[in-house]
């Protein structure tokens, strides 16, 4: 009896060969490059220029990494994703890292992206004058309750011996109407992104604006840093090295004034709603925050600033025990 094997027909064999070729091509990519998930803290904008530059200029690929650059947002938490295995690396603010450490999360800081915190408060110079911390007295100040700007502002107020009754803290929300309409005197902004955009708009409208900078008054609260899990660092140190080397090279390249036009064009691929001129100004504002003139190299971890950040969080009850954050910073 002759048996019929339909899968042995030339058509079926051809199809199998084609499928194998397609799969082989696909697998070929992953064999050549190791897939890496990198969760950012916020949406892709000028604050992530180094990350974008490293990816788009092929710096990751040159080190055998296929990096998936994932935009962040208020509902995203890179540290949680590291622990759950959804990401290999992430960007988190210092308060997030310290919160996580206080709850036993095995997170490690690999690099500090911002040497100066971009968080400042914008104000109208014709309505408000701030020469010293004491000038905050009697003002209505916008803060995002629960976020780092609240801790920073409370620290500043404590330094000036200004009690809760002497100022009004106004809950910050999505739009700037309370600030524009004068219901709040000071409003928190990121100096290198919103600060540039709103500043340009207000200046064009004939307004005179100023920025209140916490660091000028001795409050150093660390901003965004690159983090990974203790496990990945222990099990794949070589992967961590390759990733960090590409990432920091990306940041150095993006901040090099010679590459400014290219860096702006690359960010604009992701952030199409912001005009190139604004992005250009944002890049100029970002440069000294990440790579201060005559300052430490890109990615330097400022241990003292981290310790001050932990002390501030402890003082305002954000953490209930010391976490010795310095031990979790990879120097």
């Amino acid at each position: 009896m002759q048996r019929n094997f339909p899968w042995c027909s030339p058509g079926a064999i051809g199809l199998l060969v084609l499928l194998f070729c397609l799969l082989r091509l696909d697998v070929g990519v992953s064999w050549a490059e190791q897939a890496v998930a990198y969760r950012l803290k916020w949406l892709i904008n000028m604050s992530t220029v180094g990350d974008v530059y490293a990816k788009e200029k092929g710096l990751f690929a040159a080190r055998g990494l296929a990096v998936d650059l994932r935009a962040g947002g208020p509902e995203r938490d890179a540290i949680r994703e590291l622990e759950l295995g959804h990401a290999h690396f992430g960007v988190a603010s210092a308060d997030q890292v310290i919160h996580a450490l206080a709850k036993g999360s095995p997170v490690v800081v690999l690099a500090q992206l911002f040497q100066a915190n971009p968080l400042q408060w914008i104000y109208f110079k014709d309505r408000v004058r701030i020469d010293a911390l004491a000038d905050l007295k009697g003002k209505t100040i916008g803060v995002t309750f629960g976020k780092n700007d609240e801790i920073i502002m409370r620290t500043l107020l404590a330094r000036a011996d200004i009690g809760d009754r002497d100022v009004r803290l106004y809950s910050v929300r999505l739009d700037y109407t309370p600030f524009f309409s004068g219901r709040a005197d000071l409003w928190p902004v990121y100096i290198n992104s919103q600060g540039v955009e709103i500043g340009q708009r207000l200046t064009a409208a004939g307004e005179s604006i100023g920025f209140f900078e916490p660091e000028a008054h001795g409050v150093r609260f660390v901003a965004n840093s690159v983090v990974t899990s203790e496990r990945l660092l222990a099990e794949q140190p070589e992967l961590v090295e390759r990733f960090m080397s590409a990432l920091l090279a990306g940041w150095r390249g993006a901040l090099d004034p010679a590459n400014a036009a290219e860096a702006v064009a690359l960010v604009r691929r992701y952030d199409q709603d912001t005009a190139s001129e604004v992005l250009q100004a944002q890049l100029t504002a970002t440069r000294p925050l990440v790579q201060p003139m005559d300052g430490p190299p890109v990615g330097h971890i400022d241990i003292e600033a981290w310790q001050q950040t932990e002390a501030m969080m402890r003082r305002y009850g954000q953490i209930d025990r010391p976490v010795n954050v310095a031990e979790r910073l990879r120097r």
Binding site: R80, E83, K103, G104
Partner: peptide, 9 residues
């Protein structure tokens, strides 16, 4: 999954 209190309290 041996998760810390940060992920699930």
């Amino acid at each position: 999954a041996d998760l810390s209190d940060y992920v699930i309290p």
